[in-house]
Each structure stands twice: as structure tokens, then as C-alpha cells.
Design a protein around this nucleic acid. Structure first.
Length: 435
RNA sequence: GCCCCCAUCGUCUAGUGGCCUAGGACACCACCCUUUCAAGGUGGCGGCACGGGUUCGAAUCCCGUUGGGGGUGCCA
């Protein structure tokens, strides 16, 4: 058995891939790659019914987009948590036999009632010593030991929890099915996970998992809880309020490299003063110990800036290929007959410095393929407010129509002359023509 | 309520007791370049939450306050 580190990445199948999850995946991936270890993908849901194949495929596709490929030797999985229920239950029963867990017949309501009477929230350990046997409706609870639990966290350091603040949590539901916490630990043990790198929101349940590791007779993994990504209100990014689906960024014309680079600068920074760096450098330099402790605001503006830089840095052919989906899709305003690949090719270098996201390419080049391209009404009204502007425009149409040579210099000289005739300098004269 | 985490420009960060008059990036502003818009160049604005310690010396260590966030399910 190899002792190379094994990093597990465990998203739940929610129908889309969260940008925060993407960053965590990238952390795990960089570490696995750098160490010669393994990236273990586990689809996290104990309920078989919720595992939709297309959602799993969505996760795999999204991972592939950001460079985490299923066919890479570093990649292992996907595993489905729901298919290991038997092992989870067996582990729970073992815990019961060992006296580390006990059955309880209180319903959720009864637990709450007792809590109210006690003046203390949570389960009070009512059935600890009642020696109940398993039975329908009875849950199996973990017997939290006395003392304290110390979590050694790679990004946060030493975190202490007093065990008496942790209630005897449920391992098996009344219907016998395993809870996520248990399932997680059992799977981590059997998949020989050595490093658990996940979002900070999981820190409070880490002592529970750690106790389970010990109770099951194993040494807990190395923990690392990375800060969450937040919105402008400093709240954790959520699907309801915020744009968080990685797939959406992909579809809206963000480059994967830009996205990856940007995500990695949230909570971490490469050495030196340059933030835009190749993945290889990120992979080499990334360390969990250097990850920031505080939440990071996901800034669309900065992402846009990164994207623009990455677009500009693309070799021409790559740029053209990157634009293609947005030039030939069903939403494009021109017909395939109107679109001219060669014409596009010649103007592409000019367009390349003007894009923030790829779909903007359409509005930039549509006048080349359309008889009547959409106009900016505001700009039109403003520009054509003066008589001179209208005159320049009319003259330009006349003269451009009969021009012998249609090139940069001739066009410019002609327009300059027209402008002079109407008392306008080139800067002003060209405006109506451009509009 | 209880538990846990966090705190450097508006934002993302560098900084691990003297290299800090706190560096970079995004955003913003100005100027340059320019036939437009961009791109590019130059410059500017702007920050160590507060109060106590420790130390010859603190953004950096300790304590407290305040503020923010997360967790507290027979969800994952």
C-alpha cells in the first residue's frame, strides 16, 4: 500500500457546480498533483434517490472544464456514497457493540420538549444508560466521551472543542439508514483518505468526525478548512442570491484558465507581485499553510479583468476557435450564408483587445455580416444632433461609394477633407460615420 | 442562546518582531499615446477595526472590546 497522500473531493449532487466547490476542487487537485498523490472524487449523498446521473456528469464536465480530467492518472472515482450504505450500517453496529453508541427511542419532538424543560438546547443523553436494543423508530446515537477534542487544522492551526458542548449525535436514523457524518467517515476510512480539504462551514462538525475516526480505530486524516466565498453582503455565496454556477460562467464566455487563475487568487496568492500566472506555477507554489483565514469576496469585476487579459493573450487561432461557439450558435443575428469566416479572421485581431467575455464578439463584428446591424440609439441621437454631423455623414456616403481605393489611408484622407469642408476636425467628423 | 472561525486600501492580497514612510492586483481618477472605443504607458486616491499589554522596537505576539461570518436536524 502506497503512502502517497489521497485527497478527497466530495461535492453533493445539486444540479450545478458551485464556484466555491470549484476552488476547493482546485486546491485538492493542485495538492494531489504536486505530491504525486490521488484526487478522489466522491459524490456525496446518502440517499440513492437523489443521485441523478446527469448531475454527476455535470460535475465531471465542470471539473474537466477547469482542467481536472477524469482520465488523468491522478483522478480516482467517481464513487457514490449512497452505494456504501451496508458498510456504513455495519460500522454503526460495530460502534454499538463496542459501547460507543446506544439506541434511543425519543422522537425529535420529545427531544425538543426535554431540551425546553432543561433550559438547554440539544439532546440531553436521556437514553445513554437505558441499554435499549435496536428497533423500529429507534435511532443510534454516538456516545460523546468526556474531555475535549482537538482538531489540528492545516490552515487554522489548533482548534479546541469542549466535548460537553457536543450532543450525542445520530448515527443511524429511526428507519435504519446512515447519517452523512457517519457515512463520510466510514468512506474516508475505506478509501484511505489522508487529507480532507473542504470549506470552513464544516469545521464545527469536524470534532464529531474525528471522534468517529478514533472510535472506529483509525487515525484521523489531516484536516484543512478553507474560508468560504462571500457576496457583497459578506454572506456565503448561495444559489438563490448569487451567480455561483461554474457552468454559467463557462457558457457566458469566460475562459477556463482565467476562471481557474482568478479562483486561486481568492484566499491565496502566488509569490511575487504578479497574480496572473500559469497553472503549473500555481500547482508548484500552492500550500494550504498559506491560505488566508478570512472569507473572500467573489468580485465579478476582477474576474472580468482576468478574462480580458486571458483573451488578449490567446494566439489568434485559439482566439478564433474560442469565439466560434458564439459566432455560429442559434442565437446569432446573421445567417450562415451571411457569415464570412475570412472576413472575421481579418478583423479578429482588432476585436481581440476589446473583449471582456466572448459573446461580446457578436456586437463587435455584426456590421460586417448584416445589411442593417442594430444601432446604438443613444449614440445616434447624440451624434446626429448637429447639422454638420448630418452633412458629414451624407457626404461620406456619397464619396465612399465612389472611392477608387478602399483602404485605411484613402478612407482617412477623404474623411478629413469632408470634415474640413464642414468645419470639423477628424475626431469629430468620424463620429457620425462610425455610428 | 450555545459552540467555532475571522479582522491590512472599496475589493482580492503581500507581510510570520526591525527590511513598512505597509508592497502588488482589480475598481476609480488624471495624464500620455490615439481618427473612435479598447489595449498599452505614467501618475494619483486609498488600509493595518478599537483599547490595553509584552518588547529597545509590533500590522506582525498576548488579553479584552467591537464588528463580521459559520455551525448548531432522524439535511448534506
Amino acid at each position: 500500500m502506497s503512502d502517497a497522500p489521497r485527497y478527497r473531493f466530495a461535492p453533493s449532487p445539486t444540479g450545478f457546480f458551485h464556484v466555491g466547490g470549484a476552488r476547493t476542487a482546485l486546491y485538492n487537485w493542485a495538492l494531489a498533483k504536486k505530491s504525486g498523490g490521488t484526487f478522489v472524487l466522491r459524490i456525496e449523498d446518502t440517499d440513492e434517490a437523489r443521485n441523478q446521473p446527469e448531475w454527476t456528469q455535470g460535475i465531471i464536465d465542470a471539473l474537466a472544464w477547469i482542467g481536472i480530467h477524469q482520465d488523468d492518472p491522478t483522478f480516482e472515482g467517481p464513487y457514490f456514497q449512497s452505494s456504501y450504505a451496508e458498510a456504513h450500517i455495519a460500522a454503526a453496529e460495530q460502534l454499538h457493540r463496542d459501547g460507543r453508541a446506544y439506541y434511543c427511542d425519543l422522537t425529535g419532538e420529545q427531544v425538543q420538549e426535554r431540551a425546553k424543560q432543561n433550559g438547554k438546547p440539544g439532546y440531553d443523553g436521556y437514553s445513554r444508560d437505558r441499554g435499549l436494543e435496536p428497533g423500529p423508530g429507534r435511532v443510534l446515537r454516538f456516545r460523546v466521551p468526556e474531555g475535549q477534542t482537538v482538531v489540528e487544522d492545516l490552515v487554522r492551526g489548533r482548534v479546541e472543542f469542549a466535548n460537553d458542548t457536543i450532543e450525542d449525535f445520530v448515527l443511524l436514523r429511526g428507519n435504519g439508514s446512515p447519517m452523512f457524518l457517519l457515512a463520510n467517515v466510514v468512506d474516508d476510512v475505506s478509501m484511505r483518505v489522508s487529507h480532507v480539504v473542504r470549506a470552513e462551514e464544516h469545521l464545527p462538525n469536524t470534532p464529531k468526525q474525528q471522534m468517529l475516526w478514533h472510535a472506529l480505530g483509525h487515525t484521523p486524516p489531516t484536516w484543512a478548512h478553507v474560508p468560504v466565498l462571500v457576496n457583497e453582503q459578506r454572506k456565503k455565496l448561495s444559489k438563490r442570491r448569487d451567480k455561483v454556477a461554474l457552468e454559467q460562467f463557462r457558457d457566458e464566455g469566460y475562459l477556463a484558465d482565467a476562471m481557474v487563475n482568478y479562483l486561486m487568487t481568492l484566499g491565496w496568492a502566488p509569490r511575487g507581485d504578479i497574480e496572473i500566472v500559469p497553472w503549473q506555477q500555481i500547482q508548484d507554489e500552492f500550500r494550504l499553510e498559506d491560505v488566508s483565514h478570512s472569507p473572500a469576496f467573489f468580485d465579478l469585476k476582477k474576474l472580468a479583468s482576468f478574462n480580458g487579459e486571458y483573451i488578449r493573450a490567446l494566439p489568434l487561432d485559439d482566439f478564433i476557435e474560442a469565439c466560434r461557439p458564439f459566432l455560429t450558435g442559434p442565437d446569432v443575428p446573421w445567417t450562415p450564408q451571411q457569415f464570412d469566416e475570412e472576413v472575421f479572421r481579418s478583423i479578429a485581431p482588432l476585436a481581440q483587445t476589446r473583449l471582456v467575455v466572448l459573446p461580446e464578439i457578436v456586437a463587435l463584428v455584426d456590421f460586417l455580416f448584416l445589411d442593417a446591424p442594430p444601432m446604438d440609439d443613444a449614440a445616434f441621437t447624440k451624434t446626429f444632433a448637429s447639422a454638420e454631423a448630418n452633412a458629414v455623414h451624407t457626404d461620406a456616403i456619397d464619396e465612399y461609394t465612389t472611392l477608387s481605393r478602399w483602404d485605411h489611408d484613402t478612407l482617412k484622407t477623404t474623411l478629413e477633407e469632408i470634415g474640413t469642408r464642414h468645419g470639423l476636425k477628424l475626431g469629430k467628423a468620424q463620429a457620425p460615420v462610425r455610428v
